[in-house]
Nucleic acid binder design. Structure first.
Lengths: 137, 137
DNA sequence: TCGCGATTGTAGCATTTGCTACAGTTGCGT
DNA sequence: ACGCAACTGTAGCAAATGCTACAATCGCGA
């Protein structure tokens, strides 16, 4: 019973959602860091996410497998075109959500925190409405 | 390096966020089900979340440890006062987010989906603004 | 009352994401 | 040229959330 898992790779649907969020967060962070520094290292991300360097290392390795980032042992992390595109999309979405929250009267600190969590759950349709209501940027 | 994990229980911060979301989702779902049926069973939740009954069983056991739900072997699931309070809070928040999305012009189907994901990331301050902008319910 | 289907519970495994502890690299200063 | 500190990588563990497969329980109909 339960009639689930009709597809070949079972539990990948829900897991996938979270994995996607992680990928987006990391790629976005890497793009951010690469704007203020010449190189992005595992340690930078570990500080950013308040996580051990080991966790970052493993996630980066997975992102590399997915073609979203590029690294070599003991070398900084780069974004290939695919990663840059994703970063740009995430960045834009994040900005829209953030500006929208400000526009409806949420204070900056709260808007920053909420945008961080909300952005991954805002559909294209909702984002479009947010964009309009956020007013001119 | 990494200077994290100063507290006694390390990786509980981030994990905790997700665990909280799960708890809220389940308690909310139980409250929902108990409104349309006289009893809420593991199977009902498994269908609701499109997950195996085993996964539900384990989560319910954890929620029971936290005092959010009450169950006995082979018996339906109930909500103690603590669980009912949490459910009420979640429900209200969910409703506000949903009504808000409708108010800004998002279609019902999309609003339902987005509200589901967004609700866990909306702070009290943002929720207050949402409530005002959602208009009279 | 007996049995069979549905529900619930248990065992065991995989994956993700945390961690600590330790090992390997790199690079800079002496 | 050497060594130490910082950074990176590896090994191994815990917990959460998925799964399948199998066992146990319940309840209803024959």
């Amino acid at each position: 019973m339960t009639e689930i898992a009709k597809t070949s790779e079972p539990h990948q649907r829900t897991r996938g959602d979270h994995a996607t969020e992680t990928a987006e967060d990391y790629v976005e962070a890497i793009a951010d860091i690469l704007e203020s520094q010449e190189a992005c290292r595992v340690t930078d991300l570990a500080k950013r996410f308040a996580v051990s360097h080991v966790t970052v290392h493993r996630i980066i390795r997975r992102l590399q497998d997915e073609g979203l980032v590029v690294t070599k042992p003991y070398q900084p992390i780069h974004l290939p075109p695919k990663g840059k595109r994703l970063a740009a999309r995430c960045r834009e979405r994040h900005t829209i959500v953030y500006r929208f929250l400000l526009a409806i009267g949420v204070d900056e600190a709260t808007a920053a925190i909420d945008a961080e969590g909300m952005e991954h759950h805002v559909s294209a349709a909702t984002l479009a409405r947010f964009r309009e209501l956020a007013g001119p940027g």
